[in-house]
Design a binder for these strands. Structure first.
Length: 804
RNA sequence: GCCGCGGUGGUGGAAUUGGUAGACACGCCAGAUUUAGGAUCUGGUGCCCUUAGGGUGUGAAGGUUCGACUCCUUUCCGCGGCACCA
């Protein structure tokens, strides 16, 4: 039997108490202000919780507990993002059904999460692989489909043979799959796409008013990649047609000395003269075969082929040669560019390689020694633009283009439509069927389309999904029309695009959520998760939310008001935690050894939430030591409440410190500055320990303000202090500004900018008195004596600066 | 290359409408207690000078100011993201 604090017994006791009493079950209550605090729900992997997970979870939990004590009605839910590759890969290897693996992993995650003492409302737990959940994921897909935002297209996709699936652009990194690093190739296939590009502007604008880290907003802005420019029409006399190019620099039109179109461009064949056909064909085929990896590797050397025909530069009616090159992408703009080597480095490189003319149209500064000049300057060699600076020249040229019907202003985005189908088994079936070459929606009433049991999860080499072999499941008759079900499934992102909406009404079996609950809870007030979801999840979820808003299903345009990214927990050696480095810390072991409260407290004390910080064994020991210190403050060696606790106001200094502490802790938790909140509590505990008497009201408040961080110990101490209700909903202590004020303050004295002494005085002292008091100090006197005081500056209640 | 974030003791970090740099904690040193280890308690701890006291110090260099971790200029280093997007 441990003499002092027994974290294992006490933590178990209160975890059971909270679960048995459903302490954190929340119901809508319009008489109370709401607060929705959300974690990015995890993918329940076989590895169990990583040390990184509980950091964010603890932060939201501290806020949730704090807000409850402040009188808010707090929605704090948890769920499982359980569709996805690993369970399916595991099934391929072992034959265990992904549903089985998933259930097992979820159980393990639940156990781990409960052992941290997180205050979730488990009645709202959700699982994206549950038909009662994905029924509504399918429902939302149909909303998109009926709105024309989901469509099929034969598109070049990122096909990954090793994974047997196509991947989204976002899932391909340097030509390899994000998961597993397998090579990825460009192959045309029939795919489902979501028209996220219709929402480019909306998604961009929405960012402005969000309380998100600037970095994440910038990342999304870059991803959307808006650029303003113009479309310019070039005539193609050889085929008697014209071709539109996009440029951000219409002012450089007079420097366009050749044109480049993408190798995949539909006009390539017709624009090629006969004796170039062979060469062009070879180049086009080579470009098509190139994986993304190869394309990036060959970044340095420009390649291309002259087609033998010409376009007419609308600015000066000059003939310019048309080339193909893989540095022009079919997927951006119009797949064709006007090349202006004088003002674009890529065009310059190409022009140098193939001896094409270079005309500068912007005067570079005298000392400019580079090649292409991208900066501002006066226009030259540009007829009516000459002398104008870039911005004015752009404007003038666009006006000219419009007037002469040679072009118009336009905006381009880098954002592409979202490839939404996967040739995999473990995902939501797409609720449509194919009949006579037509695709039709499954009626809402027939949802969910439940994923059938199959024996073979393996995708075929041809790219046919596993569901293609699922026999009678495929056959469907809707309104007398027979057809075959869609065999592609949705990507893993689908379930997480709306889970925060399901939480507001998790058990509703008639609709995905009720308008009433949505209006009450949404938007999410605080969303905490890893930075790795900066673009993918957060952009997709915002997209769906914007659509749902346009359809009138949600009341707010943006789902997540405030977003915070927790920093990574590094290994004790300061590098990324990984099995191969052998620096992985297992949260289970830490909780067993030091307790959940120690873990929570240490996480919050380590440093700023957003920062990456190394794990520290002596650090967790320190937190554990502090917890025992607090315990020993209240509970004596025999396990009784300390006899030093008295109904007593406390001495003046203690009262002052007490109010300062309440103030700082309150403000710091509000601002998510947990580390400094804890440090302030430590200061108060240290001060209390020096006293012979512990004023009861201060001790009670101490337990209260610690409770968001160390809820188990706080509940236990609260009970031992004689309370018979849970601390979790007890009102947060108030502070008094006047009692927090210092009676006597220390003012530092600087002479010529160097600190030479200090004196104590009541607050609000004026400059003359301060100077007089300062001069009483021997050391100060020494520096001032024999010199003339030229100037004094008094910083109120802080410092007096004397210049001699 | 471009964009974003960061650089403060031996370590994690405090402190920014410009106002006592290093709070709090870890570690370390000394002492107390203990059969020993551990635990606990007390004191010390940026660096340099023997002390009073002084010098110096927030990646580097310069600038503004009575006063700069904080503002400005230049520069170095680390981390994350994007990468032929016309």
């Amino acid at each position: 039997m441990p003499k002092s604090y027994d974290h294992r017994a006490i933590e178990k006791k209160w975890q059971n108490f909270w679960l048995d009493n459903k302490s954190f079950r929340v119901v809508e209550d319009s008489s109370k202000p709401k607060y929705y605090v959300l974690d990015m729900f995890p993918y329940p992997s076989g590895q169990g919780l990583h040390v990184g997970h509980p950091l964010g979870y603890t932060a939201t939990d501290v806020v949730a507990r704090f807000k409850r004590m402040r009188g808010f009605n707090v929605l704090h839910p948890m769920g499982w993002d359980a569709f996805g590759l690993p369970a399916e890969q595991y099934a391929l290897e072992t034959g265990t059904h992904p549903a089985e693996t998933t259930a097992m992993n979820i159980k393990n995650f639940q156990r781990q999460i409960k052992s941290i003492g997180l205050s979730y409302d488990w009645d709202r737990e959700i699982n994206t692989t549950d038909p009662d959940y994905y029924r509504w994921t399918q429902w939302i897909f149909l909303q998109l489909f009926h709105k024309g935002l989901a469509y099929q297209a034969e598109v070049p996709v990122n096909w990954c043979p090793d994974l047997g699936t196509v991947l989204a652009n976002e899932e391909v990194i340097d030509g390899k799959s994000e998961r597993g690093h397998h090579p990825v190739f460009r192959v045309p296939m029939r795919q489902w796409m979501l028209r996220i590009t219709n929402y480019s502007e909306s998604l961009l604008e929405g960012l402005d008013n969000l309380d998100w880290p600037e970095g994440i907003k910038e990342l999304q802005r870059n991803w959307i990649g808006r650029s303003e420019g113009a479309e310019v029409i070039f005539d193609l006399p050889s085929i008697n047609e014209s071709l539109v190019v996009f440029t951000t620099r219409p002012d450089t039109l007079f420097g366009a000395t050749y044109m480049v179109i993408a190798p995949e461009h539909p006009l390539v064949k017709r624009l090629t003269i006969s004796n170039k056909k062979k060469e062009v064909k070879r180049y086009v085929e080579k470009a098509a075969r190139k994986s993304d990896l190869a394309r990036t590797e060959l970044e340095k050397d420009k390649t291309g082929v002259f087609l033998g025909t010409y376009a007419i530069n609308p600015g000066n009616d000059e003939k310019i040669p048309i080339w193909i090159s893989d540095y022009v992408l079919m997927s951006y703009g119009t797949g064709a560019i006007m090349a202006v080597p004088g003002q674009d480095q890529r065009d310059w490189d190409f022009a140098e390689e193939f001896n094409l003319p270079i005309i500068r149209t912007v005067e570079p500064p005298g000392d400019f020694d580079g090649k292409a000049y991208l900066g501002d300057g006066s226009a030259i060699n540009s007829q009516f633009l000459n002398g104008m600076h870039v911005n004015e020249a752009k404007k003038t040229m666009i006006e000219w283009l419009v007037k002469n019907e040679k072009g118009k202003p336009t905006i381009q985005y880098k954002l592409r439509d979202w490839l939404f189908s996967r040739q995999r088994y473990w995902g939501e079936p797409i609720p449509v069927f194919h009949s006579d070459d037509e695709v039709e929606a499954i009626p809402y009433k027939d949802l969910p389309i439940v994923l059938p049991n199959v024996e073979d999860y393996k995708p075929s080499k041809s790219g046919d999904p596993p569901l293609a072999n699922s026999g009678s499941w495929l056959e469907v008759i809707v309104n007398g029309k027979a057809g075959l079900r869609e065999t592609n499934t949705m990507p893993q992102w689908a379930g997480s695009c709306w889970y925060f909406l399901r939480f507001v009404d998790a058990q509703n079996s008639d609709e995905p959520w009720s308008a009433q609950n949505e209006k009450y809870w949404m938007p999410v007030d605080l969303y905490i998760g890893g930075q790795e979801h900066a673009v993918l999840h957060l952009l997709y979820a915002r997209f769906w939310h914007h659509v749902l808003h346009d359809l009138g299903y949600v009341s707010s345009r943006e789902p997540f008001k405030k977003l915070v990214n927790q920093g990574m927990i590094l290994g004790e050696d300061g590098s990324k935690m990984s099995k191969s480095r052998g620096n992985v810390i297992n949260p289970d072991e830490i909780i067993h050894k030091y307790g959940a409260d120690s873990l929570r407290l240490f996480y919050m004390f380590m440093g700023p939430l957003e920062k990456a910080k190394p794990w520290s064994t002596s650090g967790i020991q320190g937190s554990h030591r502090f917890i025992r210190k607090v315990w020993n403050l209240l509970i004596d060696e025999d396990g009784n409440l300390s006899s030093k606790i008295h109904d007593n106001e406390g001495d003046e200094l203690m009262i002052q410190l007490f109010h300062q502490t309440i103030r700082k802790v309150t403000e710091d938790i509000e601002g998510l500055r947990f580390n400094t909140a804890i440090s302030q509590i430590m200061i108060m505990v240290n001060a209390l320990r020096e006293r012979d008497i512990y004023p009861r009201h201060i001790i009670e408040s101490l337990v209260l303000i610690l409770s968001p961080f160390t809820p188990h110990m706080s509940e236990e101490l609260w009970e031992r202090l004689g309370n018979d209700t849970s601390i979790s909903f007890h009102p947060w202590p108030e502070y008094s500004e006047s009692l927090a004020r210092e009676e006597l303050i220390t003012i530092a004295v600087q002479i010529n900018g160097k600190r030479r002494g200090e004196f104590q005085v009541r607050p609000g002292v004026d400059e003359q008195t301060a100077l007089a008091l300062a001069l009483e100090n021997v050391n100060v006197k020494r520096y001032v004596e024999g010199n003339e005081i030229r100037k004094t500056v008094l910083v109120k209640d802080r410092l007096l600066s004397i210049v001699v």
